[in-house]
Amino acid sequence: MDIPREKLIEMYERMVTIRQFEEGAAGLMRDGRIKGFIHLYAGEEAVAVGACFTLGKDDYIASTHRGHGHLIAKGGDPKNMYAELFGGRDGYCHGKGGSMHIADLDLGILGANGIVGAGPPIAVGAAFAAQYKGERGVSLCFFGDGATNQGTIHEAMNMAAVLKLPVVFICENNLYGEYTRQDRHQTVKDIAERAKAYAMPGVTVDGMDVLAVHETVGEAVERARRGEGPSLVECKTYRYFDHQGVGDGVADRSAEEIEEWRAKDAIVRFRRHLIQTEALTEAEAEDIDRRVAARIEKAIAFAEASPPPTEDELLTDVYA
């Protein structure tokens, strides 16, 4: 697939934005400047960017508890996302949601979700709406290897298959369901195989290769737009931080394993590719990194200055 240079560069910049956003968030958490639960996406950037760059503004995504990457990939603004992490009124949810519930329906983001496996049925609903209205929209949902043991995922896949809905199920197989290794929580290795149960295509792809993800998800999205129904794309990937919080995960994972995956880092790899194919020079890549760093720094300053909601907002928006 030929991707125009500007789009390649935009994809690179978006991946760097996600990485730096997460490192920024980790720093804030370590310093005690933000509180609550945080599930960091660093390491998995190629999946979110590769997948979301196949979509338009009117398409929907349903995200997970590890949602920051998906939201940035779909167009979320780091400053409003950080503001939400601070519980500030400039946050996407005016501070009422926090990290696990950031959403922006105007951007087609149906929300991060604190419940593992809850997003796919909702994505199916958004796809139903697109089909119902006769629009060409598609709905894309992310979930991890752990979530594929939830009944909801299977219900959603079956429902999408039987109603031929425009959904792409994207499994981010990062080898761990929370802290439990995949071989201890399920007997299949390639989750894409589970697509057979719903007579839909199931493909496993290198989730550390943004172009491979983009191409495979792109085909599934086109298939969905043509009215041919859902697909499952499994992306083999890895998270750098712990399931929750800012630890590096060495307590539960071997140093060799972490090293092995870090050597495949999706951003380093994509940057090397762009330089080798002369889409980008070393200097331009460094410019991008610096530009993103400045944006993240400004976003954090904006977010930290955002006032918290006042008590009179406690009871607003319970009902429409």
Partner: peptide, 14 residues
């Protein structure tokens, strides 16, 4: 679950 999820997603989408 899928029926109610379908309703949630469809309602969020108008």
């Amino acid at each position: 679950s899928a029926i109610l999820g379908l309703a949630v997603g469809a309602a969020a989408a108008g």
